[in-house]
Design a protein around this nucleic acid. Structure first.
Length: 148
DNA sequence: CTTGAGGCTCTGC
DNA sequence: GGCAGAGCCTCAA
């Protein structure tokens, strides 16, 4: 996971992960939907980036921006958000297809969805139903609804 | 500071 | 349905 440089960006990434974690097994939604839910309707692409970093973490040293304040922060973060705890495979593109076109991983996503009973053939005939997390009361979390 | 690229989306043919 | 083009935003070089 790349830790964003600014606190705002970090909050965005975390919001993405927490939101994606609310998608139940056997259901799928879109990058754009996630973006809208977290009040960043223009950032669908960045949602994809956030998910990408779950299993394609940039090199820890030298290159990218993994800059945790200390080791325990890093440990907690990875403990909470990783490619198994965040169901990235339940996020697909707006047209109902698998968008993830990184080498080999497309099959992985397809297999995971298939294992959950989601029909994703990436063809025109059968596409999974895109769910709205709000509609089902899965977002936001009850504890998030503070009267401000 | 500019540029290019990214697991996207919408619109219009 | 498929194929551009444009828009949007962020990050890294």
């Amino acid at each position: 996971m790349a830790r964003p440089r600014t606190a705002e960006a970090e909050a965005f990434y975390i919001a993405v992960y927490e939101t994606v974690q609310r998608i139940p097994p056997g259901r799928v939604t879109t990058y754009g939907h996630i973006a809208r839910l977290i009040d960043a309707p223009q950032n669908s692409r960045q949602v994809g980036s956030a998910l990408k970093y779950l299993h394609h973490p940039p090199p820890a040293a030298g290159g990218n921006s993994i800059e945790f304040d200390d080791e325990s922060d890093s440990h907690d973060f990875f403990q909470q958000f990783n490619s198994e705890s965040v169901p990235w495979w339940r996020v697909i593109s707006a047209d109902g297809r698998i968008a993830f076109r990184a080498r080999g991983a497309m099959d992985d996503q397809g297999h995971r969805l298939q294992a959950e009973g989601v029909d994703v053939r990436n063809d025109a005939h059968s596409r999974p139903r895109i769910i709205d997390l709000r509609e089902h009361g899965w977002f936001p979390r009850p504890e998030d609804e503070e009267p401000d």
